[in-house]
Computed example of a mutant assay.
Amino acid sequence: MSLVKNRETASKPARKEKSPFREWVDSIVFAVVAATLIRWLFMEAFTIPTPSMEKSLLVGDFLFVSKLHYGTRTPKTPLQVPLTHQKIWGTEIPSYLDWIQLPQYRLPGFSSVKQGDVVVFNYPPEDQYPTDLRTNYIKRCIGIPGDVVEVRDRQVYVNNQVFANPPRSETQYFLKTGSVISAKVFKRYDITDYEQATETYGDTIPANDASGYYIHTTPETAELLKQQDFVQGLETITDPKGYHDPMIYPSSSLFNWNKDNYGPITVPKEGVTIPLDQKNIALYGTVIQKYEGNDKVELTENSVKIDGKPVTSYTFQQNYYFMMGDNRHNSADSRFWGFVPEDHIVGKAVFIWMSIDPNPESVLKKIRWNRLFRIIE
């Protein structure tokens, strides 16, 4: 028995051992492939760079965003360096080639986007990049397809019903004071978004009485500030009804809208047909031209041509959403650039796994321990 066994063993070629370098390379390749698949299929990490969602989300919060809730998108730009977005880390070198652009589909998800969801999406106006590589934005969904959205004196309405303000949403105020306020004082009241006033803001503050600060804070903190000796007055900054802000979407003289008095505007819904009159062209012309996959769209104030043919009505090919930041006076959102197409939706923000204060009082307070593993609502 032993002789036969030895012959069998001798007939098999010896297995070549991997070198340490080869094992190291294999481990890296496996890790990159696994991380890429997890990032694409299941969950992706993001960080909050701006205060547009305060106080729900703070600058320095690190989040996990679920791709499973709304369904994972298939890749549109396959020629891309793994685990990158627009550029190779630490350089200005593009991390992708747009030579191949694939049709994009969405795998089945747990749910659809709902009113009140905190959503990550690709910034629609950024058309210098492919859809799936546009800058990631995070906002709260205010209107879903078919909803009528309106803002009346800072209060949001959806389908003529009050849309409840997020618990810690912020508003801009003018804080009148006769003295300089230190950063520590603002820190004490959890105010991170402020600037000293050097001139008046519209008609809200008299021209000879502009000594103070523009602050963004919650109504509860505003009431607390009114009781402090160093505060001589606290006024809400509001754009009046009828004032036309040229920065507001759509940039048309047909609509005297601003960030505090906006709409009503209907969110486009797949399958719905609209007449292309002057107002609808102003409201939805950009949608038809940029996000619907139409070729050669020509727009004027009174007409639309697709492939050279005049059209008097249009049926939307996909769903759209209306997004707003919780820091209503410091958020570049749908009021400024329009609707979010469904194919731009990345995922749902689910929880905060780390939070780092960019301006801590001390090194020991660098990590905001009370925000770790907090569910996002």
Rank of each mutant, 00 (worst) to 15 (best):
N280V: 04
V162R: 11
K290W: 06
I376M: 02
S313R: 10
P145I: 02
F163I: 07
I28L: 07
N302Q: 15
D153M: 08
I345S: 01
Y105L: 13
I367H: 04
I205Y: 02
A207D: 12
P94D: 10
F163W: 12
K305D: 05
G212M: 08
I375A: 10
P166N: 00
F46T: 03
P103W: 02
P94L: 06
S111C: 10
I356N: 03
S52Y: 02
L224E: 15
W353Q: 04
V231K: 12
T198R: 12
Y123E: 09
N256Y: 13
E298H: 08
N208S: 12
D357A: 07
K139L: 11
L107F: 15
V4P: 00
P206N: 07
D61K: 03
K348G: 02
I352Y: 00
S66L: 02
I138V: 15
V350W: 06
H85Y: 07
A31Y: 05
D357T: 09
D190V: 10
A183Y: 12
T221C: 04
F42I: 14
I345R: 02
N280E: 02
T266K: 15
V119E: 01
K309Q: 14
I28H: 01
K139P: 07
K16V: 14
P94K: 09
Y105I: 05
P341H: 02
E301Y: 11
T72K: 08
K76V: 10
K87C: 05
D127S: 13
E223C: 07
Y194G: 03
N327F: 09
L102R: 04
C141N: 01
E126F: 11
E223W: 11
L276F: 05
V149D: 03
Y262P: 04
H85L: 10
P246C: 06
K176M: 09
K114S: 14
G178R: 08
G178E: 12
Y70K: 04
P125S: 10
P49D: 07
Q86N: 09
K259C: 10
A282M: 02
V346L: 11
N370K: 15
T131Y: 13
L41R: 08
N136Q: 05
K226Q: 06
V346K: 03
V29Y: 12
E126C: 10
D132G: 08
V363K: 14
E17I: 14
R15K: 15
G116I: 03
R371M: 11
R7N: 11
V59S: 11
D333Q: 11
R188I: 09
D153E: 13
L299V: 10
S112I: 07
Y213N: 07
E23L: 14
L79P: 01
L364R: 13
V346A: 00
V25E: 12
K16R: 14
K269W: 01
G116A: 06
I274H: 04
D357L: 07
L41Q: 11
F316Q: 00
P268C: 13
D61I: 00
V29R: 13
T91C: 08
Q232A: 06
M323I: 04
D357V: 06
Q161Y: 10
L83G: 06
T300W: 01
A31E: 03
Q104C: 06
S331L: 09
I28M: 04
F316L: 05
